[in-house]
């Protein structure tokens, strides 16, 4: 059984939630932790659980204001893991939200979208 996730955001780490009622996983805020690998470990473990008992039509929502290069690598790891679960036959989707004026975040979303087969929607706000 896949657990709820509820990591509260801080000024240098993102908020991470998974709501099993809505089936939405959300990563939001700023990501520049001192040690990205330890910070994202609970998410990677949560994805391992999801792989064992997949949930259909889960939405992965990214609403980041900023992430550093080290976080970028971990976000890619998360997306590739999501892609594996998708490729094994579980429908899901990714939504990448970005501030309409923020060209860098929009481009980052486009670059990530090229690396996965999961339906990937870029949403300007």
């Amino acid at each position: 059984m896949v657990k709820e996730l509820n990591i509260v955001g801080t000024e240098d780490t993102p908020g991470i939630t998974f709501n099993s009622q809505t089936n939405v996983f959300e990563l939001s805020g700023r990501s520049l932790p001192e040690d990205v690998v330890s910070f994202y470990k609970p998410v990677i473990e949560w994805l391992d659980e999801l792989e064992k008992s997949p949930i259909e039509n889960l939405e992965f929502s990214f609403k980041l204001d900023y992430f550093n290069t080290a976080s970028s690598k971990l976000i890619l790891d998360i997306l590739l893991k999501v892609n594996d679960i998708f490729s094994d036959g579980t429908p899901m989707k990714i939504k990448w939200h970005f501030l309409a004026m923020d060209k860098d975040l929009e481009e980052a979303g486009e670059e990530f979208s090229e690396l996965v087969e999961v339906p990937f929607e870029l949403v300007a706000y």
């Binding site: 520049l32 001192e34 900023y66 550093n68 860098d104």
Partner: peptide, 20 residues
């Protein structure tokens, strides 16, 4: 300008974390 602020912020994070 917002994009100038964002660029400076991005570069600062990489520089400062590199030093620390």
């Amino acid at each position: 300008e917002d994009n100038v602020k964002r660029k400076i912020y991005n570069i600062m994070v990489e520089m400062l974390q590199n030093i620390s």
